[in-house]
Design a protein around this nucleic acid. Sequence first.
DNA 1: CTAACCATTAATGTATACAAAGAACCGTGA
DNA 2: TCACGGTTCTTTGTATACATTAATGGTTAG
Lengths: 219, 219
Amino acid sequence: MRASDKAYQTLLDEIVDGTLPPGTVLAEVEQAARIGVSRTPLREALGHLRKDGLVEPLAGRGLIVTAVSIDDIVELYELRQPLEQQAARLAAQRGNPQVFAQIAKELRGSDALIDSGEVGIKAYYQLNERLDRAIEDSISSAYLVAALKALHLHLARIRRLSRQNVNRLRAAAVETLVIVEAIVNRDPDLAASATHVHLQQSLRNSLETIQTRTIDKVA
Amino acid sequence: MRASDKAYQTLLDEIVDGTLPPGTVLAEVEQAARIGVSRTPLREALGHLRKDGLVEPLAGRGLIVTAVSIDDIVELYELRQPLEQQAARLAAQRGNPQVFAQIAKELRGSDALIDSGEVGIKAYYQLNERLDRAIEDSISSAYLVAALKALHLHLARIRRLSRQNVNRLRAAAVETLVIVEAIVNRDPDLAASATHVHLQQSLRNSLETIQTRTIDKVA
DNA sequence: CTAACCATTAATGTATACAAAGAACCGTGA
DNA sequence: TCACGGTTCTTTGTATACATTAATGGTTAG
């Protein structure tokens, strides 16, 4: 593995999982020493993170980890909505129905997973990741896939901020199942509409959860 | 201006305008010497171009300028459609109607521009760029704007491949006017639909133009 | 006491030297 | 003549030294 890749992956993981919270100053020499690479590959990593929108230059202070406000969540969904609707639409047109039928089958049993504690919930998340992968594999457009990948970076960060409760997960599983079944039945319009509905609910939940947390903080 | 920015801008321009055609090998030392910077900032520039999707690694041969096939054009539009529909929708919701009314006014006179030769056509293109800018300014979502910017990089490249004739430009102006008027009237759905129509026509024209050229080549 | 300017310093930005990995080419053998 | 192996050379990847810029703190003048 190249040193620049190592630096990028390390910083990316730490930003996404919150180890490096928003506002953290990333000084080159400091981070290079910490990660164990020289400044050259570290700079390359920082450049990529800047393109990803995960760090930004702060006048004279170097680079800092970007903030994620409530407005950012809304704005992110204004990109997520059209991208994932299109992705679902194309998957319904081109995807292998058998692949999605299998995922649908597993989704129908996801309630049991969700109710079976931490391990089950993790398995449920992995099922969702498999669905995302299957959709991306069905899309031939490299451009759309790239845009989706960039999007998911930011989504992963937000997911940490607004942790979903079990009720929301169960509801989300039902919504997702509608999408997957539409893909199996090669119904692009339904797949897109179901995605629209799912994301609207998902956004609403995110905002409500954040809201609650903010209130908790104030109290 | 930083040396890395200079290198990035230079290479970007040359790739977009065709000076560096697809398949061109970009060796670091060679390009660094040509542009007049050292390898370090040049590598930074190449890294960004790679993230943009304008260059790609070729096993052992370093980086080459990516190809643009007919399939790529179709795939690019599969990203463009949802992004620009969403952009038009948001602009219709949030844009300043006066700004777009002014653009609409100028669009109504664009036939005269298009018929007045090279200079007029250039002015027409600039009008379109102003429209794009106005739409981006109306969108609050930084994520969507970033995705649009990345998209427009590739579109600029394709525009060179399929040069539009005067008839197409006139038709495009009419289609664009429908979009802009929908924005002025704060009609998001119409703005999105009109964008859908416009891009569909635009794609069709691109493919036909490419097709013709290919036939010419064979003949 | 405050404000402005200079010096110091710590950071980024750049250049270059070095290392490592891979490809091409030449030579030798069958 | 072809195949295989080794060597050389070109390339990318990394480290480090140097340049430059901007911020900070102290000192001095008003």
